[in-house]
Design a protein around this nucleic acid. Structure first.
Lengths: 334, 334
DNA sequence: TGAGGTGATTGAATCGTTTTAAGAATGAGA
DNA sequence: TCTCATTCTTAAAACGATTCAATCACCTCA
């Protein structure tokens, strides 16, 4: 059925060891032989069997990546970044989507252990430090993405959401706004609470500025629109003059509500800034200011660290924190 | 480093063959032995090495899935459906994103061949029939998703886009619209041309109805908005009274343009229907009517067919075509 | 001519599991 | 007690690539 090194060796009139050397250490082989073996490979259409390579090598040539939500552009961008970096090292990425469900997360970790993955990148949902510790004992390093390790026992690559909150609110204040509303929730989500914390600390620098919190049940367009309608229903004097949304989906909902029938004008009446800078943000009715995260860079960096740890398991865990970036568009503009 | 069957066997005081039987054919082993071996497995934390299993079995326990665009909810839903069905058969799905680039598509196929995948599902971009034929010769069956095989030499699972076009335009006509515009492009995309063809044939049934085609350069929100602005700029008598957008992104762009500053009212002045029924559709300023495709079902069915072909390579290829479904919301409503 | 060196190639062992034919143990029936 | 079945269990042979010590061929220099 399948062509093996043995067949190639027979065709080229050399031993299997030589065929292997041609593929992996061509310098060790005379150029005439390389040529001959290569021709045999092409003629037979030989494709090496990765299972056998892996078995011999003791570990796979792939990195497992578990993300929280495949529908979220932030994660797919992150995956793209990881993939690009990994392929440079001759590794592939196996993508798993935990969908914020502990049992799916766990079954991916099972799979990755059975496959003796080169390493695992994970955006954790449940408490999996014990699992990761075990993987590490077995020679499979792990790096957390978009979340820091509680006890710093694992390396992590994340973004400073507190700084992002400061960035957003400072920008609103700089453009002359004084009554700011934070819209987002639930506050259990670490990203939400961090961004709010940043907003609070920015406001604290300016006695004349107030911050109100409008909590939502989820980070969705629908919830954002509900919050926006709530603002619209208030007497004008009670309304904020700026909204900082916990992510772009919320921001788009708020925008839709405020903009409906031209009731209020964004940014004239109310300035609006979101978070994540998803593609939709620039395509909104009023292009949305937002806080951009280096999602692809996060993925690439995580792979980088993982490779170093795979090469030297003794390495001390590192926590890499990226800084977010302000993107100004019309929704907060003049 | 790693615990092997040998260690388990030693601990349980049996041979490795028995350990293997406990895991794969427990009926062949006395219950006392099963119990003893199981305990040894648990105590040692044994996890079997998939590479070795695969090597012995000759093929992997995973199915490769190559999709065109991981940012498109249609494909992620499809992937979810495939994954659910595959896991019932004890198989996992390895997801690859070709990003509509031939070289990425090809490198995933290389990977899948090296891994001796159980089978391959692919939403093809380039012309890959030759590649797939070769995979099949090597015992790896392939099923096309969201596209039919030109020469019917491979099984496929797709949706009848022509019927979807008919569905959309019939609905517009039924609700009293007479001057319909189709917005979408480029027409090289098979889905676009099929939907337009459906629209044409629906219109052909009604002499009093006209169809105009507004071609866009891509299926994006921005392009949709440009098209919408074009419509807005015309004298009222020249405007269509209904728009059929080739997908929901286009539709949302058109909606944003028409609705801007309350210039035109959707659906009063112009009815609007999209295609795909993505989550955003129901969350738009005016909830969007759309054509829903059974994306998860497509994935699940494709896996089903793949499994049958893997079990019996002689099976004749089948073309499964699903019917799309009309979802009516406010944008075409009363 | 022979010793020593260099570079290319070989062949066997190895990775960890599954499979299969053969062997051992047990019990039933004569 | 012996034979024949029926369970269980074992040992060894795969699967296909990589690795490493050993061998070979050839050349140089004394």
């Amino acid at each position: 059925m399948s062509v093996s090194v043995k067949d190639v060796a027979a065709r080229a009139g050399v031993s299997v060891g030589t065929v292997s050397n041609v593929m992996n250490w061509p310098d060790k082989v005379s150029s005439a032989t390389v040529e001959r073996v290569q021709r045999a490979i092409d003629e037979l259409g030989f494709v090496r069997n990765d299972a056998a390579r892996q078995l011999r090598a003791g570990r796979s040539h792939a990195i497992g990546l578990v993300i929280l939500d495949i529908g979220n552009p932030f994660f797919t961008d992150l995956a793209r970044g990881a993939e690009d970096r990994a392929s440079k090292a001759g590794l592939s990425i196996i993508l798993g989507n935990s969908d914020e469900r502990a049992e799916r997360e766990s079954s991916y970790l099972d799979l990755f252990e059975e496959q003796r993955m080169h390493g695992v990148l994970i955006s954790p949902f449940g408490d999996i430090t014990a699992r990761l510790r075990r993987l590490r004992e077995r020679g499979i390093p792990a790096v957390l993405v978009d979340r820091t390790s509680a006890d710093a026992s694992f390396s992590s690559v994340s973004v400073d959401d507190v700084a992002g909150g400061v960035l957003a609110v400072d920008h609103l204040i700089d453009s002359g706004r004084r009554r700011i509303a934070f819209v987002g929730g639930p506050s259990e989500i670490r990203q939400v609470s961090d961004r709010l914390e940043g907003a609070r600390s920015a406001v604290a620098q300016h006695p004349e500025v107030t911050l109100e919190v409008i909590e939502t049940r989820a980070l969705s367009v629908i919830e954002g629109r509900a919050a926006g309608n709530g603002i619209l229903a208030r007497p004008p004097a009670d309304r904020p003059d700026a909204v900082f949304a916990a992510n772009d989906l919320i921001a788009m909902g708020v925008l839709q509500a405020l903009n409906m029938q031209g009731a209020l004008h964004v940014p004239r009446d109310i300035a609006l800034i979101g978070y994540d800078d998803i593609d939709f943000a620039s395509a909104a009715v009023v292009p949305l200011s937002s806080i951009r995260q280096p999602s692809a860079m996060i993925g690439a960096t995580a792979v980088e660290i993982l490779l170093e740890e795979a090469a030297d398991p003794q390495l001390a865990p590192r926590q890499i924190v990226f800084q977010p970036e302000l993107v100004v568009r019309e929704s907060t503009g003049r």
